[in-house]
Nucleic acid binder design. Structure first.
Lengths: 230, 230
DNA sequence: GAGAAGTGGAGGACTGCCCTCAACTAATCG
DNA sequence: CGATTAGTTGAGGGCAGTCCTCCACTTCTC
């Protein structure tokens, strides 16, 4: 991993730097993509990003030949933040409070950013840099849950993947509630966390594992949202 | 309601009956549509339905000029069954068991039928016959919840619309889990019902009402699923 | 100011879907 | 049975949406 990173930096250094105006435009594109992705998800037309950046389509295609290039350039850091929150939650002296706070923050971030939602679960985008970060998330979440169970504040028959699925469900909900009833997701997060803590009915079926979450996310494709006609 | 039904029958009687083979084809189309809708949702190409019925596209378009005609012809009875289950649940001597059984049955039905899922929440399809049935569902669900609250087995700060939203979330989940982890939804239904019963953390935000559910569903459009390539 | 680097955005190519219509076939009736 | 009417077919025209190239043009750099 280190090695890879070094190789990459080296390559960057060797490549002739962009002309000043070109570099400025590159930043503009990233900024525009960030905003448009947040508002309409990653499956917008690249034309829209170009337009939002005040540049021609050609420029976007020259700098980022595929949508994937944009995604990889933008979302690894966004996801990294979430991983950071999970690690932070592990530090909380109260395991239950930590878990709550993590779940809350993660969903809140997705509520504000359709692109993040798309990328957090997609296996179709972010196959390299982003995927690496994504893979680091699952173990921390698992640990978060286990710690709560050891403290006796989460039922023993759930696992990290269950929390993943819960986030997946809430992300799906956001798609429809957020535009008309912002914040409504908090009710259902609360409800599910309550179930996680004090539920007693034995959960049917087998506890899902990480591969199950993978198989499920495999089917997920970022939807194309229509442009907001204002 | 009776009146409407009578009018309709009358109209049918007056209209010249279809030729025998035409009537047979009509049935075939309905049967095929049922199957294809169940497998791939209501937003399949009408060509696919025609093909599945072993008929030409033209025949389908002659008999059911729009997709909506097919939807209206098929799904009011399907939804009616669900309303029936809700009514049945009201008869259960144990209010909590009734609520559970209803939720369980409703989701199970949607797990087996993508079309039903699409129609249950869509405001874009089934604007007449189906919508009428759909509207009759909400009050019964509300009653189901209230009865449980009166019996003290459901927390007082939830309402019928919350149960609606829960079903909505699970329906969204089904889209991705059912093909790879069939039945996984039961875990999360259980978890949420447990939260509904024994949750104690006050639910944030205002309790959603029927109009909120309407506004949310307004954004929902049946997705187009790719044909299963076997 | 010459040459290299970068830009713009109209438009060709493609895909996917809807639905018509002219040529056909089948049922029905006297 | 032939005439008449009803019904069927499916290739293909049309439309909408998207991608991404290409080359005349502008801007930077030395």
């Amino acid at each position: 991993m280190w090695r890879l990173s070094l190789c990459f930096d080296y390559a960057v250094d060797v490549t002739k730097p962009l002309r000043r105006d070109a570099e400025r435009n590159r930043q503009r594109i990233l900024q525009a993509a960030q905003e448009v992705f947040a508002a309409r998800g990653v499956d917008v037309m690249l034309d829209d990003i170009a337009h939002h950046a005040g540049l021609g389509v050609g420029t976007v295609y020259r700098r980022f030949p595929t949508r994937e290039d944009l995604v990889e350039a933008l979302f690894d850091s966004r996801l990294e933040v979430i991983v950071g929150w999970a690690a932070e939650a592990m530090e909380d002296p109260d395991p239950w409070a930590g878990l709550n706070r993590f779940a809350e923050r993660a969903i809140a971030a997705m509520a504000d950013d359709r692109g993040l939602r798309d990328i957090a679960f997609s296996r179709a985008y972010g196959r390299n840099r982003v995927a690496e970060v994504r893979e680091r998330l699952a173990p921390v979440v698992e640990a978060l849950v286990v710690r709560c169970q050891q403290a006796g504040v989460v039922r023993p028959d759930v696992g990290g993947a269950d929390l993943g699925l819960i986030q997946f469900m809430l992300a799906a909900l956001l798609e429809y509630t957020e535009p008309v009833e912002p914040g409504l997701w908090r009710r259902y997060l609360t409800l599910m966390l309550d179930g996680l803590r004090s539920g007693t009915t034995p959960l049917p079926g087998a506890m899902p594992d990480v591969e199950a979450m993978d198989r499920i996310a495999e089917n997920w494709r970022p939807p194309r949202r229509p442009p907001a006609d204002h």
